[in-house]
Design a binder for these strands. Structure first.
Length: 421
RNA sequence: GUGGCGUUAGCUCAGGUGGUUAGAGCGUCGGGUUGUGGUCCCGAAGGCCGGGGGUUCGAGUCCCCUACGCCACCCCA
């Protein structure tokens, strides 16, 4: 038997339709805010991610799908959406078309990690990126847009907000030694993982979930107390903007996200409907140095990514119903003589926008009705000798069993009505 | 990468202490007289018991290896 590659999954109906519905909702919301779709390659040169995402991140360290092509170029399947978009802006000089540049994507991401519930080697994100302005109002727009996408999907989220400051001597660079000094005092009490983090990237110790370590960290100095005046002001403006829009948020001074490029505003959307292990349905932040580090002009930027699979999980947990795409009408010719009339009706239905199908068989009426039931058709249009002679069809409702003989045009109109309900 | 649990029909699963032709429910297909499904009744098809090796007169069952899956840790969407 032909097998799917290890750890990969097919998304099949009806889940595939619900998945696509989330994509549609997301696209329509971000387009309302002026974001335009960008489609970048599924893989990039490896250094786009090593330089963009950062050497100290787990994604670059152990989760990249990296391979050499036939001419020896090192390529990497996209593990996240921001670096490729920024790279494309640089490649195509999109910063020349008026700032900020506002783009969105809906695309698969690949991470070489062991799958579990809500975590897959290939997952999908819809995300936006706004490049070329450091106006806190733009931060607010991005946060609010992500919030709106989740709300439109029926996902109740908690918005966690933090500021990473900027990497200057008067800001984050001043904090790191303070944090490190604090941690050194507890070095032997921290578990192995945390010790590693404290040497590689001290901020990441806040990710630690070991209770004993958390107790120590509760007294650690916080970045928010080291922010420079301008980062502090920026954060204050973002908070005011969110309040203005009535979007609730929670300050999370220990929130550290998985990419090195974040500066100032960072945030995460968490779903209360999901277990804590995978409750992040999305996240993002500002990346004021990323464009330049990928060889472009010194432009600031901010964006978010939302996980479609996580949104689906949250929807399921919350009992959110999404429309399904079963055929509305199954056209059923009673005998071979009615097949032409059936085909004609079928295409009239389709021309009117009614999802419709026929059985492509000469099975008994009984068997065809059974098929209609099986595929979830709401209506059946039966054409037998009588209807053929009269130029009509018998429209049967599958839920109630009631049926009426109608002209073709009336049947099409009735079916269109039914589909719209 | 590490750990726990699992793998028998299309799906969900039974198959004490090894013992004849491996079962159920659901699903699929067909039938229960003319052109009426979803309920009910009857019938049929469908299984290298994940793969390999070992113990044994005999292995779905016990042992080892391996592949794959799920869940969890790390981290994230």
């Amino acid at each position: 038997m032909a097998d799917i590659p290890r750890y990969m999954r097919d998304v099949i109906p009806p889940e595939s339709e619900r998945f696509a519905e989330v994509e549609r909702i997301g696209a329509s919301i971000v387009e309302l805010a002026g974001y335009r779709r960008i489609i970048t390659p599924m893989f990039e040169n490896t250094d786009t991610f090593t330089r963009g995402v950062g050497e100290s991140t787990d994604i670059v360290n152990k989760e990249m799908y990296t391979f050499d092509d036939r001419s020896g170029h090192s390529l990497t399947l996209r593990p996240e959406g921001t670096a490729p978009v920024v790279r494309s802006i640089v490649t195509n000089h999109l910063d020349q078309g008026g700032l900020p540049v506002k783009l969105y994507y809906s695309a698969p991401m690949f991470r070489y990690e062991k799958p579990q519930k809500g975590r897959y080697r290939q997952h999908h994100q819809i995300g936006i990126e706004a490049i070329g302005s450091e106006d806190p109002a733009l931060d607010v727009e991005v946060l609010a847009t992500g919030w709106n996408v989740l709300a439109a999907c029926g996902v109740e989220a908690t918005l966690l907000l933090n500021s990473m400051g900027h990497p200057g001597e008067d800001c984050r660079k001043r904090y790191q030694p303070a944090l490190k000094e604090f941690l050194e005092g507890y070095r032997e009490q921290l578990d192995a993982d945390c010790k590693r983090r404290m040497d590689q990237n001290p901020l990441r110790v806040f990710d630690c979930k070991v209770p004993a370590d958390q107790a120590i960290l509760a007294n650690a100095p916080l970045l928010e107390d080291f922010l420079c005046a301008s980062c502090r002001e920026h954060l204050g403006d973002v908070q005011r903007g969110l309040k203005e829009l009535g979007i609730p948020y929670t300050m999370a001074p220990r929130l550290v996200r998985g990419f090195d490029y974040y500066t100032r505003t960072t945030f995460e959307y968490q779903s209360a409907a999901l277990d804590a292990a995978q409750n992040a349905v999305g996240g993002g932040g500002r990346y004021d140095g990323l464009v330049e580090s990928l060889g472009g002009p010194g432009l600031p930027g901010i964006g978010f990514g939302l996980g479609i699979e996580r949104i689906r999980l949250a929807q399921e947990a919350a009992g959110v119903q999404l429309p399904s795409h079963e055929v509305t009408v199954l056209v059923v010719p009673v005998g071979a003589e009615e097949k032409d009339a059936a085909t004609s009706l079928l295409w009239s239905l389709r021309a009117a926008g009614v999802r419709s199908d026929t059985t492509y068989s000469e099975r008994s009426l009984k068997a065809q009705l059974k098929h209609a039931n099986r595929i979830g058709a709401r209506l059946v249009a039966i054409i037998g000798a009588n209807e053929r002679a009269a130029g009509t069809c018998t429209l049967r409702r599958m839920d109630s069993g009631e049926q009426t003989e109608l002209s073709v045009s009336d049947a099409v109109a009735r079916a269109a009505e039914e589909q719209a309900r």
